[in-house]
Design a protein around this nucleic acid. Structure first.
Lengths: 234, 234
DNA sequence: CGGAGGATTGATTGTTATCAACGGTGGTGG
DNA sequence: CCACCACCGTTGATAACAATCAATCCTCCG
């Protein structure tokens, strides 16, 4: 599903790459942009596809994944609202992008978007800064997946999830237990952390038995003892 | 040791971020740049230091490393000649940078370099493109370190090393065995691949016993059967 | 109510880390 | 020039962690 709409009521207007643009520049961008819905599980593009679009995540969550020749899978990044999609000046995509949840993106055909970058220095700077930030994220993730134990990975993952903006609010009292819904199923957590489904499940069970977390529902998590969880994460 | 010199005789003039610049822009860049030597083992900066410089690798090799709180180490990137160092618009460095070999860099104070980016679109585009390329590299490395076995990692590492430009030349006959010197010691290979020294050593020994490689000297490697090595790498 | 996909739990295996000893190499100073 | 020492690499024995294989249990749907 594809539709056009104005930027005025955009969910991520202030947080995305559009933030530094004035009204005129925003108008130009709107003229090449399209809103697009992606259903949960749907693939936006496959590794090796021609790189035809750049854009922004508006809602939902997307995941970039890499595969070995024999089918082992690794999630290399998760994209949340306001994150940038695509690679300007690249001919081919390197990773498969699919939707973890029903999502919406704002997409621009790559070449016109590149023209925008060239004529709007502030836009280009923003995209460059995001690329460097994601580079640091990916490199940090390298440390996590290689040098941390399964227990540390799972605990760290829960801390990251609890720290996401969308989630902060659901605390009953300012320093009481936090409860939230994971936007991932077990297999997806395993993909992100470089573990198996079974190992993720066992680690969650251990944390529950230790009284550090609760698992009120299939996707729900309650952090009962954040300090202990942080200690567990190392 | 610090010295100034012209760009005319620069080793990486055509391959580095300076490539798209005309003579005038190059002159501006020269006026803020300094050549700097870094001895093997020396640290250029530590994670958390103020981000004061950007620059280029001219010769040698540098490595970015991340540490867990309790001292486990992971190499997150290796920088070769023409690679970019630093993060424009960032206040702090995220990773420690040290020299694997005696190296030379061309460094620019960060803030004046940012002014150059703003006034020279081609330069900014080049830096942005490199950031995206390195981002893909780091994400690919995530697949390697999490989903490949020790045997695959070591074999893949040797293939990568054999494929580097500096090394291609040392082939006796066009399709004969390739011999080259690794710019890494065993511990550094282990850091890159997310393994231990002992595991790297054992995998190399296995490959030698299988007749796929030779280990003529402490750093030297001969690839006797490239097809078998590629099969081993998966 | 039945079925399918997902999650949990259990038993076992396998890979790699860890601990430990030894061998080789290169550099330094006598 | 040689001897020693420190560092690096190899090899072996063992242990631990997580993967794999397998069965059962939920939970959400139709």
């Amino acid at each position: 599903m594809i539709s056009r709409s104005s930027c005025a009521d955009c969910e991520v207007r202030e947080r995305s790459l559009c933030a530094p643009l004035d009204e005129r520049a925003l108008g130009e961008l709107t003229s090449i942009g399209q809103r697009r819905h992606i259903r949960r599980g749907e693939t936006l593009f496959w590794a090796g596809d021609a790189a035809t679009i750049c854009g922004n995540v508006l809602s939902g969550a997307l995941q970039l994944t890499a595969l070995t020749h024999d089918g082992r899978e690794q999630a290399v990044a998760t994209l949340y609202p306001a994150d940038f999609i695509g690679r300007p000046y690249a001919e081919e995509t390197v990773f498969t992008v699919k939707a973890l949840a029903d999502s919406e993106i704002c997409s621009f055909p790559r070449v016109p978007f590149e023209r925008m970058l060239e004529s709007h220095v502030a836009l280009e700077r923003r995209v460059m800064a995001e690329a460097f930030r994601k580079l640091d994220d990916a490199r940090s993730q390298l440390l996590t997946v290689t040098r941390q134990t399964a227990a540390e990975k799972v605990a760290g993952f829960l801390i990251d999830m609890a720290g996401r903006d969308e989630i902060k609010s659901s605390r009953a009292t300012p320093d009481g237990p936090v409860t939230f819904e994971l936007p991932f199923k077990r297999g997806q957590i395993a993909d992100v952390l470089g573990l198996t489904i079974e190992t993720v499940s066992r680690q969650l069970t251990r944390l529950k038995i230790a009284g550090i977390i609760g698992l009120p529902s299939i996707r729900g998590v309650t952090i009962r003892d954040e300090a202990a969880l942080r200690a567990w994460a190392g």
